[in-house]
Amino acid sequence: MEEADKTPLSLIDRLKLKAVTQKSYGGALVEQEAKLTVRNCPNCGAGRAKDEGLTICAYCDFEFLSVRLTDGITIKKENNSN
């Protein structure tokens, strides 16, 4: 009887060990903190200004975004460069 009690116990320990020590697909979850960055124009070095829209560099016409923005969550149609 003692032997029967022992078998499941040790198996559970093994299952737990296997569960927590194996590699997860895509690697462990890395918690990222909030951050603020800017993307300057890689062509002429100018910054992106709000009034000039998000899609095209106001100075050299470099395309930051090659799509037409629609009305999304916080990004809106008005954010397309003219």
Partner: peptide, 11 residues
Amino acid sequence: CFTQNTFEPSS
């Protein structure tokens, strides 16, 4: 300065 900053929230 009117620069567009990109804010990325935490995970």
